[in-house]
Design a protein around this nucleic acid. Sequence first.
DNA 1: CGAATTTGACCTGCGC
DNA 2: GCGCAGGTCAAATTCG
Length: 305
Amino acid sequence: MSGGDDRGLFGYPLDRDLSLIFPASTGQNSVSDSLQDLIAFDDYYLADPFDESSWQPDVGFSGVKWGPIQAATTPSTGGASSSSSPVSANCSAASSSTTEAAAEGEMLNEGRRKERSEAATDADKSELKANKAKKKGEKRQREPRFAFMTKSEVDHLEDGYRWRKYGQKAVKNSPFPRSYYRCTTHKCPVKKRVERSYQDPSTVITTYEGKHTHPSPAAAQRGLYLPAATAPPPQFPFSAAAAPPDNFIHHHRSRLLQQMRALTGMADGGGMQLSQSNPWRPPVQLPDCGLLQDVVPSFFQPKQP
DNA sequence: CGAATTTGACCTGCGC
DNA sequence: GCGCAGGTCAAATTCG
């Protein structure tokens, strides 16, 4: 982080800025503690949530290497022409496979259920075989994943969505188990895995997979989320208005600031000016598809003309 | 009593 | 083909 920058993400002094994002009820650490976390962890990210090109589409924890992110290696599935170029920053392209993958996964699960059921008919079984045959030769495609580390006492961090735990597994070379959660909203394909780092037990590693097809319940409850017609579902695990997981923005504050500066063409270290007419309104036009908007509460965003 | 969690079994993919 | 590890299912259990 550059020195001398005592302005927060939205131009407020840091304390106030972060408290806007993290209401007192959600904050576990003091702002200064969190900023220390930021410094400590900024170099140890698995993927940069603000740079889709760093999203690694098929990286399980076993395959994770800590360190700088390389260009995304998109899975080469049957003639896909993605080659080695980074994932497009285009929103629709980034989300295109989500529903298909979810449907496919559901089909496989359905097949398993039928297979296990003693009542499964021959017709069911043949249908299952057909499905399996269809799947054969197609490499199963995973949805993009995004992982981040958080210093926290609790494993399951509040992120505004409702999750149901559906599994837990022991992790090789780690005394801590990995928990599997699914979004409880009907037909929402998002899953997340939570595990504690064996290298630093105070650190929780959370991996999100997929994109929510609905606003966060927490946001809806507060009436902050725009209607679906005007606001697309969040492209990022966190909804626009819901509080992101604890420390998330704390950990990525420097990149948020960088991106904000890039968007505004502001020189590094320059403070942001707030609109006097509307103190809640940011002085910048956020991109339609930027991930940033999913972290920045919707009420910070300027209205479309 | 319904919802959520736990947990052992099972499936899949991958490396050898 | 075999074994291992990750991921998921679903019955049993616990919780509110």
